[in-house]
Design a protein around this nucleic acid. Structure first.
Lengths: 243, 243
DNA sequence: TAGTATTTGTCCGTATGTATT
DNA sequence: TAATACATACGGACAAATACT
């Protein structure tokens, strides 16, 4: 266990706050879990209850914990509410969430689609697709790792454009697809395989929300088939019926 | 590892088939996972390759595995597509899926709601609710473990009725709630806690789809708040926009 | 329904260390 | 050096909400 040092220029409450914060961020204190009472922490760190309270107040400020009078202090569930509706737009979603999003393209490929992908996009097995893999972050946390397939014939040289615009909506708009909507969405809970866990920098024991979706243009022709693996620890899907 | 016995009146292929089936159903062979090749299995069980093929054919018949020529044999993904829309009805869903559903009431209680539940139902903290816990099976598999809360004042003696009708729709209908719809749905991926894992008879390492929802009557007044824990291995949510 | 223990929230005051003027 | 202001740390008392019996 980490110890605190007096008279070293760092306030005790700040040291305690740091220790608890790191426990939370490293996942040693899990989401929703109750922290020891202020009294207990005071004994453990050999300080006054008020000092512990000061430390906890700082954590509350950072939205890492939530205190409930009479109950205790709990590790705040860091759920990023990702809204899924017929007209879901990732970039728009992130903007609404008021977080600073960071989209990174991991890989691009021009290839023949695996059978399920060909089926989803309504393509023949010998019609090429572009595959684009991206890693999306919000506030520094990895939110999702996504694999998208686009019909190559209809959207020539799409990856270059996407890499520049970093938005599916705007990329498709450049090709004249002014609007598209979710035709199909499947959600399941899975554990990541070794590769996915590595890419997402998370343990293989932490679950993912595995979302499979098809976007189609206004005439119902599929323009994108994608698999998005959301971090189960950070993301919660909110389903909206839209009208 | 289980061994097979010759000359005991049970055909070798049937024994092998049984062993593999139990491995799959117990989750030791995971969904989508590739089985050892027929050759390897033949060596392991000390039988001819044809006997193994006969065993695998039986599994394919039961839709537990799928063989792909030139690739191998894989554990069939047993995804039960659970449709979520604004007007989701569990019983109706099961009927559509054409499986034989089995609903069991595990527990009923008349109690004061935890704060989040009170908030969700728009109740005061001193207004009682009924809590009903059910375990739902389809084709013998545990599909979900669900906890529902209903305002007790509005629906006196609801659990008795529910226990008899085993359908939220019909139970609410008895109270004059002819129609209700999903006001809110949140989906996340979680690992089960010890209690949940025990109830659902699954390992704590297998993820759950954790669905939180509020149903409201036609005037928008909440009539049910529920948490449904779907087995991630067996259930896939299909989101539908309804018009 | 009532009573008790636990936990957080708020208020009082006191002492000490640190930075500024 | 002295005076001042401010943040830190501690101690105690009580209120409010909650949990449990």
């Amino acid at each position: 266990m980490s110890e605190i040092e007096r008279g070293r220029g760092v306030a005790l409450w700040s040291q305690i706050s740091g220790i608890l914060a790191s426990d939370i961020l490293k996942g040693q204190l899990r989401q929703g879990e109750q922290l020891p009472s202020a009294q207990e922490l005071a004994m453990r760190f050999n300080v006054n209850r008020h000092t512990v309270r000061r430390a906890i107040a700082a954590l509350e400020q950072r939205n890492l914990v939530r205190t409930e009078q009479g109950r205790g202090t709990f590790v705040q569930e860091q759920t990023l509410d990702y809204v899924i509706s017929r007209r879901t737009r990732f970039t728009q979603n992130m903007r609404n969430l008021n977080v600073d999003a960071d989209i990174r393209v991991l890989e691009e490929a021009h290839e023949l689609p695996p059978p399920p992908v060909a089926r989803a996009l309504g393509l023949d097995r010998n019609e090429y697709v572009y595959r684009v893999e991206t890693l999306d972050r919000a506030d520094g946390h990895i939110i999702d790792y996504s694999t998208s397939y686009f019909p190559a014939a209809r959207f020539p040289d799409l990856p270059a454009l996407y890499r520049r615009l970093l938005s599916v909506t705007r990329t498709l708009a450049e090709f004249g697809v002014a609007d598209y909507e979710r035709k199909h969405t499947r959600v399941s809970a899975r554990l990541p395989d070794a590769t996915t866990a590595r890419v997402m920098q998370q343990q293989t024991s932490r679950p993912l929300l595995y979302v499979e979706s098809i976007n189609a243009d206004t005439r119902g022709v599929p323009v994108q088939y994608g698999i998005t693996r959301f971090s189960g620890d950070w993301v919660q899907l909110v389903l909206m019926a839209d009208h």
